[in-house]
Structures are given as structure tokens and as C-alpha cells.
Simulated scan of single mutants.
Amino acid sequence: MAFDVSIEINKSFSVAADADLVFKLLADVPESTSHFPKLENLVKEGENVYRWEMEKVGAGSASIQTIYACEYASDPSTRDISWKPAKTSDSNGKVAGTWKITEGANGGTDIEFATQATLTLPLPKLTRAMITPVVKSEFETIVDKYITNLGVVFKD
């Protein structure tokens, strides 16, 4: 009755902030995710492991909530941050990705963001063709808003 939707997003952007400051914010998972739209709850499950609970989409018994956990690693010497799926009892998604942070021109910072997600939707397989593009579009819209929110933070 359920089906998977796979999503891959790659974004590159620059901000007018010091690379070390950018790394510090993005490596601090609770702080950086405080700028992530539609995140209902972030739960620390262990050392560098966080469970993401997104806002419910839909209404009543037809609502869906995406939940997944990630284990994070960061390297200050390269300014790379990565995450991979971690087990959590109520997960319906697996998400992995990276932030690559490099010094840009004029004291700014160049940032590369990449993420891959697989979300299991508890819907009839007959709805796959209709629902998959909507889910992918919503995921990309949320990531774009997150990047916009971070850009505002780094202007301060």
C-alpha cells in the first residue's frame, strides 16, 4: 500500500559572511535547523544524532508526517559537514547529504549543498504518478526557503 519517493537536490550559493562563521552555524544542527521551514520538532537521539519531525501535511486521517533521523559529522579543517540516515523507531524517511563550505571572493563564502532523500508514503500505489511530483516540488521549495533563511542570517 505504501510507496517510496526518491529526491535529490544540489544547490550552490554564496553568502557575504566569513567561512568559519558559516561552518560554525551549519555544524550546530539545532541552531541551523531552527531556520528550516515546516520543521515541527528536532529531537536529539544520541551523540550527533537528531530525529526530524516535519509538520503534518493533509487533513485528519489523510495527513502524513515525515519523520527521519540523521547522524551528523563535521570537519573544521575542511569545513565539510555530512549526514547519513540513522535508525529511529518511527521513521518513514532516509536522508543523507553534505555541506561543503569554501572561502569565496571578497571575504564571502561559497556553499554547496547536496541531499538525497527517500520518503515512504503510506498511500495507495495508484496515487504514485500524481503524488510524486508534488512531494518532490514541496521538498525543493522547503530547501529553497531554508537557503533563503540562512542567507538572511549570514547578512547580519
Rank of each mutant, 00 (worst) to 15 (best):
Met1Ala: 14
Ala2Thr: 13
Phe3Glu: 01
Phe3Tyr: 09
Ile7Leu: 14
Glu8Ala: 14
Ile9Trp: 05
Lys11Glu: 06
Ser12Arg: 01
Ala17Gln: 09
Ala17Pro: 09
Ala19Phe: 02
Ala19Ile: 01
Val22Arg: 13
Leu26Phe: 05
Pro30Thr: 11
Glu31Met: 07
Ser34Met: 12
Pro37Glu: 10
Lys38Thr: 02
Leu39Gly: 03
Asn41Ile: 04
Glu45His: 07
Glu45Arg: 13
Glu47Val: 11
Trp52Gly: 02
Glu53Thr: 11
Met54Ile: 05
Met54Arg: 05
Lys56Pro: 00
Gly58Ile: 00
Ser61Met: 01
Ser61Ala: 08
Ile67Gln: 10
Tyr68Leu: 07
Ala69Val: 03
Tyr72Arg: 05
Ala73Arg: 02
Ser74Asn: 13
Trp83Ser: 10
Ala86Tyr: 09
Lys87Ser: 06
Thr88Glu: 07
Ser91Gln: 07
Lys94Phe: 06
Thr98Pro: 02
Thr98Leu: 07
Glu103Trp: 03
Ala105Arg: 14
Ala105Leu: 12
Asp110Thr: 03
Gln116Phe: 03
Leu121Cys: 04
Lys125Trp: 09
Lys125Thr: 06
Arg128Trp: 01
Ala129Leu: 14
Ala129Pro: 00
Ile131Arg: 00
Pro133Thr: 04
Val134Cys: 08
Lys136Met: 07
Glu138Phe: 07
Glu140Val: 00
Thr141Tyr: 04
Thr141Gly: 12
Ile142Ala: 09
Thr148Gly: 10
Thr148Arg: 11
Phe154His: 07
Lys155Asp: 05
